[in-house]
Measured scan of single mutants.
Amino acid sequence: MSGNGNAAATAEENSPKMRVIRVGTRKSQLARIQTDSVVATLKASYPGLQFEIIAMSTTGDKILDTALSKIGEKSLFTKELEHALEKNEVDLVVHSLKDLPTVLPPGFTIGAICKRENPHDAVVFHPKFVGKTLETLPEKSVVGTSSLRRAAQLQRKFPHLEFRSIRGNLNTRLRKLDEQQEFSAIILATAGLQRMGWHNRVGQILHPEECMYAVGQGALGVEVRAKDQDILDLVGVLHDPETLLRCIAERAFLRHLEGGCSVPVAVHTAMKDGQLYLTGGVWSLDGSDSIQETMQATIHVPAQHEDGPEDDPQLVGITARNIPRGPQLAAQNLGISLANLLLSKGAKNILDVARQLNDAH
């Protein structure tokens, strides 16, 4: 009898209710805020589980004197976190989706994509230029951005401005803007500013005609071990179906173009009346040469937790077992079709030249 009692006690200790789920994140304040929001949602869904947040620095956090596009290494903000995932030191990792490459290392998958916040870019102005827009900034004003995508589009749109690289986390960039006289304004992701509670610093939100956004911008991705079915089931509740389908289309477009950090590629997606609209573009580094096109596809946005595919093969690095396969494939095909259209119009040449120029500098 006593033996059975011990077995029952052991089973209770090993039951999922007692389990601590370890969540990996970057150390920056924004990353911690984003991770806290994901953990809060998981806690609400699984009140019996405990969650421990483990923060670590990544290569991208450490190399702050070089433009991201020049470092010449993929997975700048993800490699150390993936290493911890691989060694079973954490069970899942919360990322900004735009930091996750469209091809993940073997053994990993994006197990959830959370509801997207505003994906557009924002302009934050130096205190002396508050009330201005990019259009009304004085001639030769210097605007800071760490992104080739932003610089290429904005140089084309605002030729009277000069664009220079600015690195560091959000706090560091804002301090550089406010305390030094080098920059009249800087460009940042609206979602990051909003998550930090800095709505009052948003001086201008850039519309798609001015600057399309990065693939996955404004959404959070939760990376897990691809074979860890328990954790895949656990994080599945975080999937937002519309965000998922938009981001599958965007990531398929980028992957098929073979774009990345070192080339200016941008997108804009919208879901309306059962249609998914995808606009994508590529630019030369100075913005003088560009190709942009829009395509659409009829896609039914499923309700969360309709029964999805059981075999769960990944699409552009994403596993969404609780979302039907048909809409996911339709979104992926839309991204591939748009990429093929741009490639047929000469996108590869623009991107190759951009890559060579970026590598040469």
Rank of each mutant, 00 (worst) to 15 (best):
T279G: 09
A152L: 13
H207Q: 12
I113S: 03
E86H: 13
A185T: 14
D65L: 04
A67E: 01
S184R: 13
P241H: 08
P106V: 14
H268I: 03
G236F: 01
D65G: 09
A347W: 01
L49Y: 15
E250H: 01
G274E: 15
I113G: 03
L30K: 01
N88D: 07
M212T: 11
Q229T: 07
L170H: 09
Y213I: 01
K157I: 10
F125W: 12
E258W: 03
E242V: 14
A360D: 12
G197C: 14
T59N: 06
L49T: 13
K140P: 12
I21M: 13
D178E: 12
A360W: 01
G280I: 01
A151F: 09
E250C: 01
L85T: 06
P302W: 11
E293I: 09
G216P: 01
P105E: 06
S344R: 15
L315C: 15
V301D: 12
W198Q: 06
R156L: 09
E258G: 15
S184C: 15
I187W: 01
Q204V: 13
K115T: 12
G236D: 15
A189I: 01
E86D: 12
T35L: 06
A330F: 07
G218N: 01
V202C: 12
Y277I: 03
L42G: 01
N88T: 13
T133G: 06
G280Q: 01
H207F: 08
T190A: 13
I205N: 10
N333H: 14
N340D: 12
T41D: 10
A270P: 01
R22S: 12
T66Y: 06
F77R: 01
L85A: 06
G280T: 01
H199L: 09
R167W: 07
D91G: 05
L254R: 03
K128M: 15
V93H: 13
I350G: 01
S45H: 08
I318F: 15
F108E: 15
A354Y: 01
I350W: 15
C114F: 08
D352F: 14
S69N: 12
E117W: 11
P106L: 12
D65N: 05
K79Y: 12
A347P: 15
K87D: 13
F51V: 14
T243R: 05
H126S: 14
H120E: 14
K62Y: 12
T109I: 07
K140H: 08
I336V: 05
E310A: 13
P302Y: 08
R150I: 01
L285R: 10
I166F: 13
T58Q: 04
D352N: 06
L343Q: 07
G144C: 08
T279P: 03
K98Y: 01
I318N: 06
R246T: 08
I248Y: 01
T319D: 07
R225Q: 01
F77M: 01
H256C: 12
F77Q: 04
S344L: 01
L137T: 04
T78W: 04
L68S: 10
A226F: 10
D121S: 04
Q50V: 01
T145S: 11
H256K: 06
Q275W: 01
G280W: 01
N200C: 12
P324T: 14
Q356L: 09
K27Q: 08
D121H: 03
L244T: 14
I21L: 15
I231E: 01
G107P: 03
P309V: 15
H256V: 09
E82V: 06
I205W: 01
H305C: 14
G274A: 15
S147R: 04
E306C: 04
R26N: 01
V39G: 07
P309I: 06
K70G: 11
K345R: 04
G280E: 01
E135Y: 09
L148T: 07
R116M: 03
H83F: 11
T109Q: 07
L154T: 08
P101I: 10
Q328W: 14
T145L: 07
Y213S: 04
Y213F: 04
L177A: 05
L161Q: 12
D312V: 06
S96A: 12
H199N: 14
S290F: 13
N118H: 12
E182D: 09
L343C: 06
S184T: 14
A330N: 13
L170K: 03
T243N: 10
L92H: 05
T243F: 01
K43N: 11
R26M: 01
G335I: 01
Q194S: 04
L257M: 12
S165G: 13
K272S: 14
P105S: 09
F108L: 13
R26E: 01
E139R: 08
V142Y: 10
P208A: 07
G216L: 01
L220D: 04
C261K: 01
R251K: 12
L234C: 11
V23G: 01
S288C: 11
A249Y: 01
L174V: 10
D228Y: 01
S75A: 13
T269S: 04
I63N: 14
L137M: 11
Q181V: 06
I187H: 01
G335M: 04
D230S: 13
A331G: 15
K62I: 15
H300K: 14
F51E: 04
G346S: 01
L276E: 03
D99L: 01
V39E: 07
C114R: 09
T78L: 10
L85S: 01
H305W: 09
I71M: 15
I336M: 05
G197I: 01
S262I: 12
H305S: 06
F77W: 10
L42A: 06
R164D: 12
